[in-house]
Amino acid sequence: MSDQWTDRLSEYLDDELPPDERSALEQHLRHCAACGAVLADLKRIVTRARGLEDRPPERDLWPGIAARIGAGSGETRAIDLAAARGRRRWSFSLPQLIAAGIALMAASGGAAWLLHPAAQSSVAVRDTIPTTPVVAGGNLSARNAGDRSRIAGQSYAAAVADLERVLTQGRGRLDTTTVRVIERNLATIDSAIAQARRALAADSANVYLNSHLAETMQRKLDLLRQAAALVSSVS
């Protein structure tokens, strides 16, 4: 399902190909629907990633994240979010799509995590993120794909667990019908995630299955975030 150009598509998207290779690839794209489809997928992921809000953290998240992934305290420094956004590269190889997708979701989920009233602690508010982003879309090439996938998966699981805890703790404040509807829809999404995972286990390089799994997991985060917001609104 790939040819000599498939792995160059992310460089093309990042405008990092030499002019002659860029020209050759564009010529190839005119005739190769497969590469065109992969390129469309990559563009879609980049578009969605750019659409994620870079909401300033309401507290420094790094110590908690570092503790979860066993990375120690690590070096942190304040950076300008707008500048960081401008510097982002969006290089993905096909097997990395899942890691990228989950990482982007976890980045979004991390913001949702802050909806928990308890998370809005007295810790000083700082526009601080780790210099080696664990869950941001950029800099994924700094680690191998396996590590990225593992770390992204851990971050996603942590964000889901936090939001589920918010829902569990706050369910008594919500109408029972609302709770039942949310839980039933979460179960629907979980079922879809499980099916996508099983399909992916048999065809790990399948671009569609990778992106579908990532999008379905994103839906779960979105719904959990919505539920957490409801809990927060009636607190």
Partner: peptide, 19 residues
């Protein structure tokens, strides 16, 4: 023009302008 493993395929209509 082609079909791909995993039941994924693409085709163009007209000049293929929209994605």
């Amino acid at each position: 023009r082609e079909t791909r493993k995993g039941r994924r395929f693409s085709f163009s209509l007209g000049t293929g302008s929209a994605q």
